[in-house]
Design a protein around this nucleic acid. Structure first.
Lengths: 122, 122
DNA sequence: CCGCATCCCTTGGGATACTG
DNA sequence: CAGTATCCCAAGGGATGCGG
């Protein structure tokens, strides 16, 4: 344990592992970052920005992120229907952390790449 | 793009996505956190703490983390062989960020869980 | 003890077509 | 337009046994 967190448990018994598995999922991170950048995005815009994501995965991730309280979904009953996604206040807090992390990775990716090369992988 | 990072690219063209895919992998995170906590760990200890990980995945993640420069592997040619893993200086920097994130998730997991319940999932 | 090699299996996820 | 439903595939990952 680190202070009070015990990762030495399966996800069912460790909320942190559980929460983390959603929040640090690759696709979810990208979704959150783009929502942070644009504030509001519709399904197909999101799909365009989160390059390579499929319909299925996008809608699945959006549902989970909504359930966990990171994002908000608003549907306007027009024809054709219009749906908008945006961060909640909670989600915004998390995105700030993600941005910090992303910035760090950007700054250090050259180092990582150099390491890989030297190591012989890739 | 956020400043200068363009996530709107496949991982091959976006180093950040690439680096992130290693660094924010679920198993890798747990490995790094435990190494941060104990400073030095041997293979089987690691396997014990990173609950649920298999031989195969553990050794694969260790190799990648080493290649990317987060950890260091030292093999002592005894019989039977002894191998120790520890963070590099670079890895330590990253773990500090992870710890911050983990702390945040710990603090907020009740909120997330409550959200989920209210949402009806799970 | 470390960790590779094997085998097998599950399941995440891609592509596409379709509907409210 | 926003998603669901379907089908299908590749690959990640678990368990185990062996070898250095």
């Amino acid at each position: 344990m680190f202070g009070h967190i015990d990762y030495r448990n399966p996800p069912e018994l460790c909320p942190v592992r559980d929460v983390m598995s959603v929040a640090s999922d690759q696709w979810s991170i990208l979704i959150l970052l783009w929502l942070g950048y644009f504030s509001v995005l519709r399904f197909n815009k999101l799909k365009k920005y989160v390059y390579g994501i499929s319909n299925k995965v996008l809608s699945q991730r959006l549902k989970v992120l909504e359930a966990d309280g990171y994002i908000e979904r608003k549907a306007y009953p027009e024809v054709p229907i219009r749906v908008e996604y945006n961060l909640t206040e909670f989600g915004r807090l998390y995105v700030d952390k993600l941005l910090d992390l992303a910035e760090w990775m950007h700054d250090n990716s050259p180092k990582v790449m150099a390491n890989r090369k030297r190591y012989g992988l890739e």
